[in-house]
Design a binder for these strands. Structure first.
Length: 507
DNA sequence: TGACAACTTTACTTCGTCGA
DNA sequence: TCGACGAAGTAAAGTTGTCA
């Protein structure tokens, strides 16, 4: 995207805001009914340092990293290089053979130095993450660079609430997306301009007056045209003619990839149009096997180059319509149109949604009616303003985010994501069911009450996860891996499921 | 706990384009 | 001219937070 640097900088600062860290500390202390003491984190660090030293003394752990082997290997290689001893070193030029040996030795020494540097880094990494186990390697590296490689200084700085956000900002700025290069050649540009002119002059013969007016007053802005507009130097013109939905989706690239990819390809990726090639079909079915048609077509399309989410959605409907695949969630009404079943409950007839050009006459039609006659359905009024929120599951239980029992589908109950439901869940007494007693929350540094695991294997208190994922600066993004993550993907650990997840936990 | 508003998501409709 | 298909826009369902 072509924007000025300030805008990009603002966009890439996604991780914890200063406010968030401060809040986390506040909440943590509020919970334990303690007064906020400014040097509390330092006291905590001191305790941890003493504990760590004691633990090391009792149970010395030697972490083996591939580097140790590599250094040994390099040392052996160095020893095996033949040596040349000259009696009068400066008398003559070295022979070719001697030059090669020197070159090899220098190279190996450089490598060895690099390996030692790595080893030293890992030593510091272990020391720092021993205290701040929620930091990742990249964050430690950035912090060390910031403190002239002084790990003690890093440890000290990290006791300041605003230091981690500062480091994360530095990292985030490293990933400023480069400008999307113009991938059009001169010939392509000429052809494109020709096409654009043709489009501009194109006047379709329309019989309806209304349609004619619409055709003259606005023309649909195609994706390639819209993206080309972004190359304009004038920021006002960049989004000219874009629909609200498109702008919204475009802004969601980090916050919500599904929304973005539903309407866009990956930045710089050329859009593919036309019929699906056999390779694309193969990719589509492979993806279908992996994630299924769960409605997140944006996410679905991410692995299919050149195709956006709605293209995948349309293609899926096409496959259904042409009976190449079968999905019981869709029905075909008498008029031959596909309808997705909403609010389908076990043993009950689901409803289908029908669009109406007249917004004041919204209707929900019954499946039976739809199957019998598509036109008769319009006579039935549905004045319900708000449907039952939780239509996916009949159960009244509040096991939010828990995998369905005996369900091999891999889906999760989506009900009960509100504060209220969570409160009810907590009230139900499940909170006491902590399978990880003594586990420290990396955010609050307090013992985790309700541990939850992400698909990436990181464990934090459920409340900490929720606060991270709700933080507008890094909404729906894992604070540790920076990868997309929603609350629904979290699994609260209990005695029932801990064995299933124990091996997946990353420490 | 219900009502409601704001926001998000996505199924579906409509329209543009192209080739026969 | 027409049918088929791709793509954009929008209506409406779902979600979540707030307030009384």
């Amino acid at each position: 995207m072509v924007t000025n640097n300030t805008k990009e900088e603002a966009e890439v600062i996604k991780f914890y805001s200063e406010n968030y860290t401060a809040k986390a500390y506040r909440i943590s202390f509020k919970k334990s009914n303690k007064k906020i003491i400014r040097d509390k984190p330092i006291n905590k660090i001191k305790e941890l340092l003493i504990e760590q030293a004691r633990e090391r003394k009792l149970h010395p752990i030697v972490k083996k990293r591939p580097e140790s082997d590599r250094i040994r290997q390099l040392r052996e290689e160095l020893a095996n290089i033949s040596t040349v001893r000259k009696e009068r070193v400066f008398d003559s030029e070295p022979t070719e053979e001697e030059k090669l040996i020197i070159q090899k030795r220098v190279m190996l020494q450089q490598l060895q130095f690099q390996e030692y540097e790595k080893k030293d880094f890992y030593r510091k990494l272990d020391k720092i993450t021993g205290l701040y186990n929620f930091l990742n390697e990249e964050e430690v590296k950035a912090a060390l660079e910031d403190c002239n490689n002084d790990e003690e200084q890093v440890i000290l700085n990290l006791t300041q609430q605003d230091y981690l956000p500062k480091i994360r900002r530095i990292i985030a700025l490293k990933y400023v997306r480069p400008e999307v290069e113009t991938y059009m050649s001169t010939e392509q540009k000429e052809a494109y301009e020709k096409l654009a002119t043709k489009r501009k002059n194109y006047v379709k013969k329309i019989t309806s007056e209304d349609a004619k007016t619409r055709c003259y007053t606005y023309s649909r802005l195609r994706l390639d045209d819209a993206l080309n507009q972004l190359k304009s130097d004038d920021p006002l013109k960049a989004f000219e003619g874009w629909s609200e939905a498109r702008i919204k989706a475009y802004k969601m690239i980090d916050a919500n990839p599904n929304t973005y990819y539903y309407r866009f390809n990956a930045p710089g990726e050329k859009q593919r149009n036309g019929a699906w090639t056999p390779e694309e079909r193969k990719l589509f079915f492979k993806r279908l096997d992996e994630v299924g048609a769960d409605g997140q077509w944006g996410i679905f399309s991410m692995t299919i180059p050149g195709r956006v989410g709605y293209q995948c959605s349309n293609f899926y409907r096409h496959l259904l319509k042409s009976k190449q695949i079968v999905d019981p969630n869709y029905i075909i009404s008498n008029d031959g149109k596909m309808h997705y079943l909403f609010g389908k409950k076990d043993g009950q007839v689901g409803t289908i949604r029908r669009h109406n050009r007249h917004p004041h006459k919204h209707k929900m039609i019954n499946l039976e009616e739809a199957l019998n006659s598509s036109s008769s359905s319009t006579s039935r009024h549905n004045t319900r303003k708000r449907k039952n929120k939780y239509t996916y599951d009949d159960s009244d239980s509040d096991d939010y985010l828990y995998p369905k029992d005996n369900d091999n589908s891999g889906t999760y109950r989506s009900a009960g994501t509100t504060k209220r439901t969570r409160a009810r869940y907590e009230k139900s007494g499940n909170v006491d069911e902590n399978p990880l007693p003594g586990f420290t929350d990396p955010i609050t540094l307090e013992e985790v009450v309700k541990p939850a695991i992400s698909p990436y294997g990181h464990v934090m208190g459920y409340d900490s996860w929720v606060r991270c994922l709700n933080n507008p600066d890094c909404k729906n993004k894992c604070p540790i891996t920076k990868k997309p993550l929603t609350k629904r993907e979290l699994v609260i650990l209990t005695f029932e499921n801990i064995d299933q997840y124990r091996d997946k936990i990353i420490q």
